[in-house]
C-alpha cells in the first residue's frame, strides 16, 4: 500500500532523512519510533504530499507522491503534529468544510460526517467551537477530518502527544480499531505505545532507519541488557557476598539509597543464565526479605544507542 525507496530530504545543509526505505502492507499499522528530530515528521510530510523529497521514491496506494499528488491526496487522511485546526469554527462546520473539500456533496456528505463523528465519539461536541475543546477532543476532531474521505491510508503524526492518560488510551483504541480496515502510519516517541497499537515498528534515528521489527521482538530487545534490579531486606556486605556466590553473577552494586529494611541493589549477570530464581532461593535461604526483583529494561534512548552502535559495527565490517 505504501512503498518508500531511498527517500532523502535535505534542508539546505541539514539532512532530515537519508535513504529511508520501507514498505507497508494493506491493513497494517506501522509505527514510526524515534526521538524528536529523527525525521518522522519529514517522512510523513513527504508521504502526505505536503512537500517533496530531495531524492528517492514514495508511492501511496499505487500513485507516486510527486507525479500524481492529487490521486494520493484523494486516498489519504493526514493529521499533522498537534492537529492544527481552524479554532474559530464549530466542529460540525469544520467537518462540513473538509468533507466538501474532499469532494462529498449533499446527503452523502451529511451521512459521512455523522458516521465519522460517531466513530471518533465527537457527536456531542458538534456545535462547540474547536478553539474551546480540550486537547483530547481536538485530537479526535483531527482524526475525524482525516477519515472523511474514507482513506485507504491514514497518516497520524504523534496522535497521542500532549494528551492525558485517559485520552491516550481512548485515541490508541480508536486507532487500533482500524487495524485490518485501513493502512495506518503513526509516529511516536513513546516506546510502549507502539507495542500496544502497531503491527510493525520502524525505528528512525538521525534520518535513517536503524531497525524494522515487530513490537514483540522489540520488547525482547529491551530486556537484553543483563541486569536485575533487586531490593532486599538484608545487610549490604552479606547480601553481596551471597549473591556473588551464585554462578553467573558478575557484579553487585548499591543502586540508590538504602532505607530501613530496603537495600536497593543492581545485579549484573552473564549473558547465558537467567539467575533470578537462584537469587530468590539464596535470599530465602538466608532468611532475608525479598522486597522487589525485576529485569532492567532499556530506555528508548539506550535502544537507539544500542541499535546505532550495532549498525556502526556492521558498517565497519563491510
Amino acid at each position: 500500500m505504501i512503498e518508500v525507496k531511498a527517500l532523502t530530504k535535505r534542508y539546505n545543509d541539514v539532512v532530515a532523512i537519508d535513504g529511508v526505505t520501507f514498505r507497508v502492507e494493506k491493513g497494517e499499522i506501522l509505527g514510526f519510533l524515534g526521538p524528536n528530530g529523527a525525521g518522522k515528521t519529514t517522512t510523513m510530510r513527504i508521504l502526505s504530499c505536503f512537500m517533496p523529497a530531495t531524492s528517492g521514491e514514495a508511492t501511496v496506494a499505487g500513485f507516486d507522491c510527486f507525479e500524481e499528488p492529487m490521486e494520493v491526496k484523494k486516498r489519504l487522511g493526514y493529521l499533522p503534529e498537534s492537529s492544527p485546526l481552524y479554532k474559530d469554527m464549530r466542529v460540525g462546520e469544520y467537518l462540513d468544510f473538509v468533507a466538501a473539500v474532499k469532494g462529498l456533496r449533499g446527503a452523502d456528505k451529511r451521512s459521512k460526517i455523522a458516521e465519522v463523528m460517531l466513530e471518533t465519539s465527537i457527536t456531542d461536541v458538534e456545535k462547540r467551537l474547536i478553539g474551546r475543546l480540550s486537547k483530547g477532543y481536538r485530537q479526535r476532531v483531527g482524526i475525524a477530518q482525516a477519515l472523511l474521505n474514507d482513506p485507504e491510508v491514514l497518516i497520524l503524526d504523534e496522535p497521542t502527544a500532549g494528551l492525558d492518560p485517559k485520552q491516550i488510551v481512548e485515541i490508541r483504541q480508536l486507532i487500533k480499531n482500524m487495524s485490518g480496515k485501513r493502512t495506518v502510519i503513526l509516529s511516536t516517541h513513546i516506546l510502549p505505545e507502539v507495542s500496544i497499537v502497531c503491527d510493525r515498528v520502524l525505528i528512525i534515528h538521525k534520518g535513517r532507519v536503524v531497525a524494522e521489527d515487530t513490537p514483540q521482538n522489540l520488547s525482547q530487545r529491551r530486556q537484553k541488557k543483563n541486569a536485575v534490579r533487586l531490593t532486599v531486606d538484608a545487610p549490604l556486605e552479606e547480601a553481596r557476598a551471597a549473591l556473588l556466590a551464585i554462578d553467573g553473577v558478575k557484579e553487585v552494586t548499591l543502586d540508590g539509597y538504602a532505607k530501613a529494611g530496603e537495600m536497593p541493589l543492581l545485579v549484573e549477570t552473564d549473558h547465558a543464565r537467567d539467575v533470578r530464581r537462584d537469587m530468590a532461593a539464596a535470599i530465602i535461604h538466608n532468611g532475608w526479605g525479598l522486597v522487589e526483583m525485576r529485569q532492567v529494561m532499556m530506555s528508548l534512548e539506550e535502544i537507539f544507542v544500542d541499535l546505532v552502535t550495532e549498525e556502526d559495527k556492521t558498517n565497519v565490517q563491510h
Binding site: 492529487m70 491526496k73 489519504l76 499533522p80 481552524y86
Partner: peptide, 14 residues
Amino acid sequence: KSGTIEMLFTYPLT
C-alpha cells in the same frame, strides 16, 4: 502561523 496550511495543502485541492 497556526499550521492549518499543512492540512490545506494535503487536501485534494489545487
